[in-house]
């Protein structure tokens, strides 16, 4: 143990001695701190590895589908569904990368480290905006990484096989879908951050996220067709084909799908900001 090193000057006037900083600098420092927090959470890497697992599983399923396609008689090959990784891989990527976004705040509530976090950055909207910035960046770049990997893997596996199994006979046709899928992972991350801020519980947040991106699309299939299309059209995993204008059964226009996607983020952050500001912390 060391003894206390006292400083020579007394500090009731220390407040005056602290250099004033701009609101922008406070925000940049908060973003840097949140980035450090997310890098030092073990769950970040666990969910990222789970995303890799989902990608590998998706590629395996596509491989099996292609094997089945190749073994099928030519007259049956036109009945095969498209080998679109948006359907197989990206909902799981949305869940696992989205979970990283939720964990950035729920881990603080569950471990009570939200207290020191707010003592360091007491402007709650600034803190939430910093978290949203970091979470959004992770979602965008994580989504882009997995989308590129998935589409590259699918393109390699599909080779020169024809449509409808191969949705992109020309690989560059896949780029809008790749970027749109990445953007939707970013929005999912922000939505999960909002959920986590309101629910303050990791279990509740991940359950809700799973319901939103994994269970609800399956549930929609059990609805009457009209309601299936209405309900399914506004689900996050189904927005990608509607935004890029691909061939799909859903009901939204491209602009409508973009508006719904933005609406998810705006509503999630708005409700989160309101709750975070109003409620006592810890």
């Amino acid at each position: 143990m060391t003894t206390l090193q006292t400083r020579p000057d007394t500090t009731e006037t220390a407040a005056a001695a602290v250099p004033s900083v701009s609101a922008g600098q406070v925000f940049r420092d908060a973003v840097a701190s949140e980035w450090m927090k997310v890098r030092t959470l073990r769950s970040t890497y666990a969910f990222f590895i789970a995303g890799v697992g989902a990608f590998l599983l998706g590629m395996f399923i596509l491989f099996m589908l292609i094997q089945s396609f190749d073994a099928a008689p030519p007259e049956n090959q036109s009945n095969y569904e498209t080998a679109d990784p948006t359907v197989v891989v990206m909902p799981f990527v949305m869940f696992f990368i989205g979970a990283i976004g939720g964990m950035l705040i729920t881990s603080e509530f569950t471990t009570r480290s939200i207290g020191p976090g707010l003592l360091a950055v007491p402007q709650r909207r600034t803190l939430l905006a910093a978290k949203a910035t970091v979470v959004g960046a992770i979602g965008l770049f994580g989504g882009l990484l997995f989308a590129l990997l998935s589409f590259s893997g699918a393109t390699l596996l599909l080779g020169d096989r024809p449509a409808p199994l191969n949705p992109w006979p020309n690989p560059t046709d896949a780029l809008p879908t790749v970027f749109c899928a990445a953007a939707l992972v970013m929005i999912t991350c922000i939505v999960t951050l909002g959920l986590g801020t309101v629910l303050r519980s990791t279990a509740s947040t991940l359950t809700t996220l799973g319901g939103l991106v994994l269970v609800a699309p399956v549930f929609a299939h059990f609805l009457p067709t009209t309601w299936q299309l209405r309900f399914g059209s506004i689900l996050l995993p189904n927005l990608t084909p509607q935004i890029v204008g691909a061939n799909h059964p859903w009901m939204l226009s491209q602009a409508g799908a973009v508006a719904v996607a933005i609406g998810y983020a705006v509503v999630a952050l708005g409700v989160a900001a309101f709750a975070f500001k109003r409620r006592d912390a810890s």
């Binding site: 900083v21 450090m36 959470l41 471990t111 480290s113 020191p116 003592l119």
Partner: peptide, 27 residues
């Protein structure tokens, strides 16, 4: 400077990481 709860630190972070995250937010 304040301490309200001795348990208010993420158990998965090291002591250095915990303080570094706080320190970074205040430059």
């Amino acid at each position: 400077g304040a301490v309200l709860d001795a348990d208010a630190a993420h158990p998965g972070r090291t002591a250095f990481q915990h303080l570094a995250c706080l320190a970074r937010s205040n430059g």
